[in-house]
């Protein structure tokens, strides 16, 4: 897993690249939290276009990121979700609380 951060105005985009499973999830989470704390964005966009695989470990990463943005009084979007990861998010029902949009492949 690799993450690339891009900041413009109050918006921080975190691009997740590679396979997001339990093996890489803790490190990924630490890095996202670290970048939120450093940049205090108003909006966080988790860009999943570079994800080649995601399982339930990714759901916890999405939920934790959402929580820490909420603590800041900011908002979070999940964007460019590939088909396989979207199926996992769909099964989890997080769509009910978080705005998620698919990648147009």
């Amino acid at each position: 897993m690799k993450i690339i951060t891009d900041i413009s105005g109050g918006r921080m985009t975190v691009r997740l690249i590679g396979e997001l499973d339990h093996h890489g999830a803790r490190q990924t989470m630490l890095e996202i939290i670290d970048r939120i704390d450093m940049n205090l964005p108003r909006t966080l966009v988790l860009d999943m276009s570079g994800l080649t695989f995601m399982d339930s470990s990714g759901i916890a990463v999405v939920l934790k990121s959402y929580k820490s943005m909420k603590e800041l009084g900011g908002r979070m979007l999940v964007a460019n979700v590939p088909k396989q990861a979207m199926k996992v998010l769909d099964a989890s029902g997080v769509q009910r609380i978080i705005t998620i949009s698919a990648l147009h492949e």
Binding site: A25, R26, M29, D55, S56, S57, I59, A60, L63, K64, K87, V88, A91, S92, G93
Partner: peptide, 22 residues
């Protein structure tokens, strides 16, 4: 059951639900 976990906030309790639906 969906959302049942003993794993704290690093887990979401969706593993079996995902296995079932896949």
């Amino acid at each position: 059951e969906p959302m049942y976990t003993t794993g704290g906030d690093e887990r979401s309790g969706m593993g079996f639900t995902i296995m079932e639906s896949f």
